[in-house]
Design a protein around this nucleic acid. Structure first.
Length: 590
RNA sequence: GGACCUGUGGUGCAGUCUGGAGUGCACGCCGCCCUGUCAAGGCGGAGGUCGCGAGUUCAAAUCUCGUCAGGUCCGCCA
């Protein structure tokens, strides 16, 4: 989709212009029109002929003028003239408006302009630092124009899908109360109550559950969320989610609501409606793909060899689990590349990475590897047959605890085999039955994998105290092409189960009261069963437009160190402002 | 908190390994020429704290250390 397809035709005319540059065609020949925009290029042919390429977000149109001495790149001008066919032999089939031009032009300079700090052609690849410092110019380029407009179209499709499904859009506070949860919060000092703070919400999680108690029944919001954690290609301090919650529903209802929104959005953005979204349990995803966000565009799965090596002589494989990943036609991988992969595997937590080149030997297929001489004949043939390897393949193995072996090979799978995230086909998948708890905190208490209001799996409630690590939850993630789009869960609405979860988490009644008191209090007065979800719109749009970095779908993003190179934020506050807020700086600047 | 990559006229690069005068390429900019171009063309010109600071050296864009900025990743992100 490009910018011209998204615009609703005819709505852009104003008292200064009649039509957009990119919309003009041979059907307009003979019309006298006014167009406005920026001077993209000028080509002078002496005193009495010059061509001006006039640009707006829809495209470029050529204007023929007497002379263009006073015009420069990026001047903002209004051109009034007659649309005419270009003379024979001068048509340009490389641009949509190449059949026509605007002649007999009267030009009004609306604003002059200094030469821009970088070229505005889409093909020019400019350092991102310079682009960010001059974001207002970067935004003029077709790439960001398209990204912003696709994003608007996605938002529109999502709103429309949610409206159609009976959801009501409710805004929740940006100034919220500190409720220590997972992510570090941004704090806002209170001027009227010195020494106290609001925080910016990590998500509207508690607010939307309160809306359910409030009988709203179906809530959604395109919500800004703020988390003071280190930035990544797919993470900014502030990001946008479709946040939703519904009452008297199960997981399947939530899947239906969200599916409609993301499939509609995909269809609007890409022109193709993806298939219905399959589901996969967390265990299956981890065991077969080594990731809780598997890229299903890659068909290769992990293969388990734990049984084969259970009593093996191979010391490197004396671990509870041995898993393998076959890389087709990769036996020629260089030693330095293999070493780099091994380094990466160690970085993620593996002891090492074993590799076997599948070669044609004296007696059929054999393996070429430093470990080959330790293998028994049975082990060797199992490696080849179970991975369905053929000559020229490469087999990677990791032996470790189940989780480590799976995650390390899963990371290899995604690093080596995955295409860029934006490349089709779009493979959505629901990941279900996440563990309720994941890891332990400093005191040895289990930590919630999702959040402490997540409903345990009905079949596992009995295990809550005896074997918390085995308890599955009614939570789920939505994954697209190996990116986690979002997550949600069925919430606990029964106080006995909530108490039990808090006990498992090592949260005392007093702590629960001080952290989430208002929510627990609300639940005393009749909480409906409810469930919800939230997914990142920045990531979704980035995938649709083929961007690897969500900065490219955000108008004014921040750098990896959290700076805004255009405004200079974060920056110091005046001494007066600091005083008014009741703050004292330990290292005041002046 | 940590690892790696990058930083050279306005922009994009080469030069750095192997030290020797700010050397080169493309785009842009300025001036002149040019009546059918479209990444117009021709001629001429301007433009530099080689991110910053120390150090080594007769000599540093180049080697060493530190530092700043941008990027990718690990940790972190209920």
């Amino acid at each position: 989709m490009d910018s011209r397809e998204i615009a609703e035709s005819g709505t852009e005319s104003t008292s200064m212009r009649d039509v957009m540059c990119g919309e003009l065609s041979h059907t307009d020949i003979g019309r006298t029109v006014s167009v406005c925009g920026w001077v993209s290029r000028r080509r002078e042919h002496g005193e009495h002929l010059a061509f001006i390429d006039l640009r707006d977000y829809t495209g470029i149109v050529q204007c023929v003028v007497d002379g263009a001495q006073e015009l420069r790149s990026e001047f903002v001008i209004q051109v009034t003239g007659v649309v005419r066919a270009r003379p024979d032999g001068t048509m340009n089939d490389r641009i949509p408006t190449g059949e026509i031009e605007i002649g007999d032009c009267a030009v009004v300079v609306l604003a002059s302009a200094e030469p821009p700090p970088f070229g505005l052609e889409d093909r020019s690849d400019v350092d991102e630092q310079i682009r960010l410092r001059n974001r207002f110019i970067d935004l003029r380029r077709p790439r960001l124009q398209r990204n912003l407009r696709v994003r608007a179209a996605v938002n529109r499709a999502i709103r429309s899908a949610m409206d159609a499904q009976g959801f009501v859009e409710v805004e929740t506070p940006i100034l919220w109360a500190p409720t220590p949860e997972g992510a570090r919060e941004f704090a806002v000092p209170s001027r009227l109550h010195h020494g106290t703070f609001y925080v910016l919400p990590q998500s509207p999680q508690l607010a939307k559950q309160l809306l359910m108690v409030g009988g709203v029944d179906r809530y959604y919001q395109i919500a800004r969320c703020m988390r003071d954690e280190d930035l990544r290609a797919d993470r900014q301090f502030e990001f946008t989610q479709l946040d939703l919650e519904a009452s008297f529903v199960t997981q399947e209802d939530v899947f239906r609501f969200v599916s409609r929104a993301v499939l509609d959005a995909a269809e609007v953005a890409t022109g193709v409606r993806p298939d219905p979204i399959p589901t996969m349990t967390w265990f299956e995803a981890m065991d077969s793909y080594g990731s809780d966000k598997p890229d299903l565009r890659v068909e290769e799965k992990l293969v388990d060899f734990s049984d084969v090596f259970a009593n093996s002589e191979v010391r490197a494989f004396s671990a509870p689990v041995v898993k393998a990943l076959r890389l087709a036609s990769s036996a020629t991988t260089t030693r330095s590349q293999l070493d780099a992969w091994t380094e990466r595997a160690k970085e993620i937590g593996a002891q090492g990475l074993a590799w076997f080149r599948v070669v044609d030997g004296d007696a059929g297929l054999g393996l070429d590897s430093p470990l080959d001489r330790f293998l028994s004949a049975d082990e060797r043939s199992a490696l080849i047959q179970r991975t369905a390897s053929v000559e020229g393949d490469l087999i990677l193995c990791v032996a470790d605890e189940w989780r480590v072996a799976a995650e390390v090979l899963g990371s290899m799978r995604s690093m080596i085999l995955s295409a860029p995230v934006g490349e089709g086909p779009y493979q959505y998948v629901w990941i279900t039955e996440f563990p309720l708890f994941d890891g332990v905190d400093a005191d040895g208490n289990p930590q919630p994998a999702h959040h402490p209001f997540t409903m345990p799996h009905e079949d596992d409630i009995a295990l809550m105290q005896s074997d918390p690590a085995k308890v599955r939850s009614q939570s789920y993630d939505l994954v697209l092409n190996g990116w986690e789009l979002g997550s949600g869960s069925v919430r606990i609405h029964r106080r006995d189960i909530q108490s039990s979860v808090f006990r498992s988490l090592g949260i005392t009644d007093e702590e629960a009261e001080s952290r989430f008191g208002f929510l627990l209090n609300a639940f005393k007065y009749g909480a409906p069963p409810h469930a919800g979800f939230a997914f990142g719109i920045d990531r979704l749009v980035a995938i649709f437009v083929g961007e690897e970095n969500i900065r490219e779908v955000i108008a004014f993003p921040k750098t990896q160190s959290g700076s805004d190179l255009m405004t200079g934020a974060p920056s110091s506050l005046s001494a007066t402002a600091v005083r008014d807020l009741g703050l004292r700086l330990t290292n005041p600047e002046s």
